[in-house]
């Protein structure tokens, strides 16, 4: 049996984000809640997903900006932990994720008498991002080619095909898994299933890259 070859190639498209300051800032958790209700979805996306692009290599205290700010600036570790465990990959849309963040914040604020505020003087600043894509001109037809390209590609491509594909473009399993399982792709259902789950492990983008390359290596060895 020859090496499986896709009918349609996988094309790597990388991206970067242009950040826009919204001029809205919260100095305490009540105002944070109000602004999370109001700001555009792009801003919720930025503070919960763009983290992965900003921390492609090194991970911070918590994997979203809300959790990090309440823990470090408002010194509210309990709320930080409750928001920090949120996995954006468990939600099918940004509004669902926003709803969950608001529910946690409201419930937390209803239990405490004094509203925690920034003790460092650093407010929570709302930002949103505009994603700028660039096709890398890199096409792969076989699993070996895919694996080798993935190991070397610019990290923004991993963000684009895993995070952007899922929540802003509605391709829930992510582009890699979709191509690996597709009939005109490689038709590797099991591998695709394992690759789709990598996004939910709480890894950095470099960690995701490493894990997917490892899964491909295992598949290639069989």
């Amino acid at each position: 049996m020859g090496v499986p070859r896709a009918d349609s190639p996988f094309r790597f498209v990388s991206c970067t984000e242009l950040r826009e300051v919204m001029g809205q800032r919260a100095m305490d958790e009540q105002r944070l809640l109000e602004l999370i209700e109001e700001v555009p979805a792009d801003s919720i996306y930025y503070h919960t997903h763009s983290y992965y692009l900003r921390h492609a290599y090194a991970q911070g205290l918590f994997p979203n900006d809300f959790a990090t700010w309440v823990a470090l600036s408002a010194h509210d570790r309990v709320l930080g932990e409750r928001l920090g465990i949120l996995d954006p990959f468990e939600f099918d849309g940004i509004e669902q994720l926003r709803g969950e963040i608001l529910a946690i914040l409201s419930e937390h604020l209803s239990r405490i008498k004094i509203i925690p505020h920034s003790t460092t003087g650093e407010p929570f600043e709302f930002v949103r991002s505009h994603v700028i894509e660039a096709d890398l001109g890199l096409e792969t037809w076989t699993l070996r080619e895919f694996r080798d390209a993935l190991a070397d590609v610019e990290v923004g491509a991993i963000y684009n095909h895993v995070c952007e594909a899922r929540l802003r473009k509605g391709r829930l399993s992510g582009d890699f898994a979709q191509w690996l399982s597709a009939e005109d792709g490689l038709g590797l259902q099991e591998l695709a299933g394992r690759v789709a789950k990598v996004g939910c492990l709480g890894l950095s983008l470099e960690g995701m890259r490493e894990q997917i390359v490892r899964l491909c290596d295992r598949e290639l060895a069989t």
């Binding site: 990388s14 970067t16 492609a56 660039a134 890398l136 070397d152 590609v153 610019e154 990290v155 923004g156």
Partner: peptide
């Protein structure tokens, strides 16, 4: 620079 950055910059530059 991080791996792939120079190639990505060239692609952005084309735009």
């Amino acid at each position: 620079a991080p791996q792939g950055t120079v190639d990505f910059l060239r692609r952005l530059g084309q735009r």
